[in-house]
């Protein structure tokens, strides 16, 4: 399984590389004309919004025989602040459990095509789910320091590699009246996102991204009350339309 994931990921990465390699003859388009969410570049618009979904495959270690992919609505909003600074807000919505993160970014163009950004997002997740007749509740605070590296190919393709550290600075879960966990895992793991952004239907742009999450606590699995301290792998697909 792990071997299989790795091979697949490598193949996808290889195709991403080809996307850049084979676009040499195409007409260049200035970055200012391209909509973006992940790509680290100072904002020219006041707001930038993306709506989409994520699908996260849950590992056997905690979901056992249920080897399923958990979907979530995904809303990503950027707000220009000043010069190279902007705010990055993100909502991951599943109705009964949701995550909101918000944090500043500074984006620095390195060359005509290469740019990078650094940021830090504070996250809060919460959920109320009835599990087999028992009302379970959970909340948690998170922190995601992150770095992004973006490369603009000349065929209106923006490729971004983003690395995040995942810090769980408070996990509180209850099953009925029973307090299950009050946990603090400063270095829970890390996540690596490879995002491709390009023009799509009409004037919109499309984001296709793969996020590899390695963590000992993934907020969407809080109802499982696992005591593991192992960095399990949660592969995540992200699809978004930049409005």
């Amino acid at each position: 399984m792990n071997h299989s994931y790795r091979k697949g990921i490598q193949l996808v990465l290889f195709f991403f590389l080809l996307a850049g390699q084979t676009a040499i003859k195409a007409q260049d388009v200035p970055i200012d004309h391209q909509k973006r969410i992940f790509f680290p570049y100072p904002m020219d618009r006041k707001w930038s919004t993306s709506v989409g979904f994520t699908g996260t495959t849950m590992p056997y270690e905690i979901t056992e025989e249920l080897h399923f992919r958990m979907p979530a609505g995904d809303v990503h909003i950027l707000r220009r602040l000043h010069n190279k600074w902007y705010l990055d807000g993100h909502l991951s919505l599943q109705g009964l459990q949701n995550l909101i993160t918000l944090g500043p970014r500074i984006a620095i163009p390195v060359s005509d095509r290469l740019s990078m950004a650094a940021g830090n997002d504070i996250g809060f997740w919460f959920g109320i789910i009835n599990v087999q007749g028992v009302k379970t509740k959970g909340t948690g605070w998170q922190n995601y320091p992150n770095l992004s590296l973006g490369y603009r190919f000349n065929k209106r393709i923006l490729v971004t590699l983003k690395a995040e550290s995942i810090m769980n600075i408070g996990i509180n879960t209850h099953a009925g009246d029973i307090k299950v966990t009050t946990d603090y895992r400063l270095f829970s793991g890390s996540a690596y996102t490879l995002a491709l952004e390009q023009p799509f239907y009409g004037k919109k742009s499309l984001t296709l991204a793969f996020r590899a999450i390695y963590t000992n606590f993934y907020w969407q699995t809080w109802t499982l009350f696992e005591p593991y301290d192992r960095n399990l792998f949660f592969p995540q697909i992200i699809v978004g339309i930049i409005l």
């Binding site: 195709f15 080809l18 390699q21 084979t22 676009a23 296709l208 697909i237």
Partner: peptide, 13 residues
């Protein structure tokens, strides 16, 4: 996505 006129890449789930 077409990378050149002849060459395409695909990804799916």
């Amino acid at each position: 996505m077409a990378l050149t006129k002849r060459f395409n890449v695909f990804a799916g789930s």
